[in-house]
Design a binder for these strands. Structure first.
Length: 139
RNA sequence: CCAGUCGGCCGGGCGGCCGCUGCCCGUUUGCGGGUGGAGGAAAGUCCGGGCUCCAUGGAGAAACGGUGGCGGCUAACGGCCGCCGGGGGCGACCCCAGGGAAAGUGCCACAGAAAACAGACCGCCGGGGCGUGCUCCGGCAAGGGUGAAAAGGUGCGGCAAGAGCGCACCGCGUUGCCGGCAACGGCAAUGGCAGGGCAAACCCCGCCGGGAGCAAGACCGAAUAGGGGCAGCGCGCGACGGGCAACCGUCGCAGGGGUCUCCGCCCCGGCUGCCCGGGUUGGUUGCACGAGAUCCGUCGCGAGGCGGAUCCCAGAGGAAUGGCCGCCACGUCGGCGCCUUCGGGCGCAGGCCAUACAGAACCCGGCUUACAGGCCGACUGGACCU
């Protein structure tokens, strides 16, 4: 893969090193993402935190609620998601941003290849939206 | 070989690609290399400890909570081991909240005459009466019936009929002797039977218990705003309130600033320096050498004790210990062939699934619950062969 312009024509990164992927750790980040754009797939819902991310870094958070299953199931889902995100990071070119993955129970049995494909699709779709996030009524 | 009882153990393996994390080494500070990295229940959070903080002069009592055969083990326990008693099983073995009902209170539905100072429905026996199968009086509690339970059970004698009324055996109480550390057991004598059940109803008795928890606790600690103390300099007037005072608060006028001037509006009324306390995010620690693991010896029936040697064996923090793929084992399904005690077993090729329960969060000892499949050992009952 070569450094190219992405479809939106923003953030051209010729010859830049690959994106670094870090995990979100603060509760406030998760809450901020909950008001951003969403993209749903059979296995999960992807949220994008409003705002321009730090250059060259995509931060991701995983939300796997107790409703999904017990600790063993939740951990396995987290591991599969991390593995898929890591694979995606190798070829990510889109804008820097913060995302949160809301997991569903089907992630346990869904084929790994389809999780990867859905994740790439969802990240591309959210990367194309304006960074400021959706217009919301001021509360 | 079949059926069963008890105890212990395992609970995937190999390879490839790509990753996470603790420690060590190197380093061009990007990273590279080496090495370690979930469980028997890590679970439920039900007990017991260590550790930490708080409270506490010592001892005791009350209250509350827990616990309950006896002896031992243990740091401790509601745990474990051994034994005793009761119950179940042909047996190996299993089950028991197993102190006290002659301290008191309470409850015992339905049925039944009567459910606890006993009593008499049907009955049985004797006597009186008359209308001769009913009634009255008295005796009895064996039989019937009710019930979970009705003042021991069986048999013989006895009697008007009966009854521990008498006797034998069994059960029970008391006393004595013997065995045992003890729970308790054995034997003998004796009493003719004392006494309903429920204490997982209150209660009584013995024993144990201060509270909260690693988000315990300790250390480091910015920036901004705000709080307190001290020192120096400064400190317009008036009114009101508080105060011994220093001083503080409110209001008005004057002053300064936004804004060069006026008006209006808003803001400020101390400044500087040093110190203190509190404290959000964060970092370090507690936090991985311990009632530690493995092996050996020794004492003990055993739980376990003692001694020696060797070893270091997870430390995350939106939470690492893995993701994907291939092969194999195990399992399972039907097919074919052979054997068979007709339950099944073995062999061959093939299809399917790709493992159950479940993820450390300060650490240990237990308990309880969950668990696909499999292995080992000891023992019991039975069948067959020699």
């Amino acid at each position: 893969m070569g450094p190219i312009e992405n479809e939106q024509g923003c953030a051209v990164r010729k010859g830049a090193p690959p994106f670094r992927f870090e995990s979100l750790k603060k509760r406030s980040d998760f809450k901020a993402a909950s008001v951003g754009f969403r993209f749903s797939t059979p296995g999960f819902t992807l949220l994008r935190k409003p705002g321009v991310g730090d250059d060259g870094i995509v931060r991701y958070g995983l939300t796997v609620t107790r409703k999904v299953g017990n600790a063993v199931i939740r951990n396995r889902i987290r591991r599969r998601l991390r593995a898929a995100i890591r694979a995606l990071a190798q070829r990510h070119e889109g804008p820097a941003m913060d995302i949160v993955v809301l997991a569903r129970a089907s992630l346990l049995t869904l084929p790994f290849s389809s999780i990867e494909a859905d994740l790439a699709r969802a990240v591309a779709a959210l990367g194309a939206r304006p960074a400021a996030g959706p217009a919301r009524k001021p509360s």
